[in-house]
Design a protein around this nucleic acid. Structure first.
Lengths: 338, 338
DNA sequence: CTGCATATTGGCAGCGCTGCCAATAGGAAT
DNA sequence: ATTCCTATTGGCAGCGCTGCCAATATGCAG
């Protein structure tokens, strides 16, 4: 006989509210009221109910509760990736706030694919969440339609360059890119290149790139060269991208990277090749990752308020705030690499 | 009049299965069968139902479905942090597998606090998930009790040094630390120090530290010095920790860091101070982060199969596998810093 | 001690969907 | 054409909890 571990039996006739009521000698609605601390009941009743709950090890069934009350207290996050620290940061900010109000977070990863996003949104909507949080403002027609029809709050994060469906919390990627371009020009860099990643799928990176180029052109100093990695951003892609770009266009004096991961790759490449930063080549990133502040030379970059975005987004949902767009801005960190 | 955005009205009398049935001119159970592709129905019926679904924009209510079928297809993740990339990596691995089987992921962050873990587990259990995934094997008595009583699968991740409640997927932190110690001794380092973070809360880091010390002692080369940062691990904490340790114990020839984040901080510190690696000071990390492979000198570290752990854990749950422990091992990366 | 307002409480009908089972329909076999 | 078997289909009772409402208890002024 095998007495070890879980024997694959579903034991517990899972305790129900009715059983607790029975055990406490009160009605079901009374137990419900006590447990939710809603409505009125005597101290005596309260104690009796809690004792029964404790004794039976009762765990409320929120599935039933949500069905009965038509309120799931679930917030769905449909994000492009978990590898890019940006999204865990947003989840962290929102999660903290939601948790305090006893909301739970459900998430799904789209891998930057609008089709997958649509499927994920549909799947999430099936749980009748209180809100759906998405990255960016670009969504498929179907996604937008479902979201609008769902009647639940929608929060679009990290991008303000476009029109939102309901709530939007973030900052302007275009403005961030322009600020970067202006900063680099002000520093005197004239032969600027770009090393980035897939900017069709990552529409925010695409918007930054476009705005950056436009800002340079406006000053009569158009981008001199670019190298675009087909996949997701990574330190390795940044290193390789810079290596390739320099091979093609050696006389660059500064590089704008699609984000800090990429920029760190470039930074490491320079260190390994003995290219001195910023005198020989300047490097500018985007995101303001912690790690980029501790490198021998702190990275020049844009710090984005990722955690705050999550927090504000969650708070808006909790407050059932009217449709609006909230700009949390960004901060240009001068650093020492540009 | 304001016609902009969401006017805070809950429009849609949310379409129900009954309405779809009505519209399609079939019974409710038929719609249910078609939608779940379960049981039999004619092609004609299928088409009519799907047409009605499309026309009405019906989105099944999984809350009701879960209640009726007593199966939520929800997997709960109760993790210590989202800042430490380890956990997003595990989520990513598991999420990919689960998603393909139409399971959804719910998560909660404990911030390495057993008390919060207990609260989060209770909250998760209320959704009657198919499984609960936790980090490590150390849990409060209450957590363990609830989990056992819940009847749902429990998967403990990233640690195998102890006894599991049900399923466990990971590797031995102690073995990883021993391998690190042996490697460092083999390389000839004799005055080894440790720079780590809160190892009471992060029990896995604690186990590594203990095993590392034991391994050094077993070879008669006990740890020479240590510096422990009170909070969570970070690059900055690693840099600062090394700086402090060297101030107190200058003649070290190698440092074992609690993880790669900390190690990178140490690495940057050495670069900034002109301490040559590994000749003057060797650095050894833990985790095998991507970024640590692209630094001018790849970091010597232990690569942990985080994504695979998530994938295997999810698969075990999907397969309703019997209780067991799966060791996915780790890989020592020699690197160039030790 | 009586009457009325207020505080507590219990009963019970759903929430929207699934599972079970009986009913009907469509064919093949006789 | 009739019978039997199988493929389809509809009906309906819950799943466990909440919301509403009526019923009962309690407290206090009169």
């Amino acid at each position: 006989m095998d007495f070890s571990g879980n024997m694959n039996v579903k034991p517990q006739t899972t305790v129900t509210l009715a059983e607790v009521a029975e055990a406490a000698g009160v009605g079901e609605s009374t137990v419900s009221r006590v447990l939710r601390n809603h409505g009125s009941f005597s101290q005596k009743t309260h104690d009796r109910v809690m004792a029964a709950v404790e004794r039976l090890g009762y765990v409320p069934n929120r599935i039933a509760g949500a069905l009965a009350s038509a309120g799931s207290r679930l917030v769905a996050f449909v994000i492009p990736s978990l590898s890019n620290i940006v999204f865990p940061d947003v989840l962290r900010g929102a999660g903290g706030v939601l948790e305090a109000s006893h909301y739970q977070s459900v998430f799904a990863v789209t891998d930057y694919d609008p089709g997958r996003e649509e499927a994920m949104v549909a799947a999430m909507l099936a749980w009748r969440p209180s809100a759906v949080m998405l990255a960016g403002l670009e969504h498929s027609e179907g996604t937008a339609k479902m979201l609008r029809a769902s009647g639940c709050r929608v929060v679009e994060l990290l991008d303000l360059d476009g029109t939102a469906l309901d709530l939007a919390v973030g900052f302007s990627n275009a403005a961030a890119a322009r600020a970067s371009a202006e900063f680099m020009l002000r520093r005197g860099y004239r032969r600027i290149g770009y090393v980035g990643h897939d900017l069709v799928r990552d529409t925010r990176a695409g918007k930054r790139f476009a705005a950056f180029c436009a800002a340079l052109e406006a000053e009569g100093k158009p981008l001199v060269g670019r190298e675009i990695h087909a996949g997701a951003s990574s330190v390795e892609a940044g290193r390789l991208g810079l290596e390739r770009l320099l091979a093609r266009v050696p006389d660059l004096d500064a590089i704008y990277f699609s984000n800090d991961d990429m920029a760190l790759g470039g930074y490491f490449h320079c260190m390994a090749r003995g290219i001195s930063i910023p005198s020989q080549l300047a490097i500018f990133g985007y995101n303001g990752l912690d790690i980029a502040r501790v490198t021998p030379q702190p990275l020049s970059t844009i710090r984005t308020p990722r955690v705050a975005i999550g927090q504000v987004a969650a708070q808006l949902v909790l407050d059932d705030a009217p449709s609006q767009t909230i700009d949390l801005g960004f901060e240009l960190i001068e650093g020492e690499t540009a």
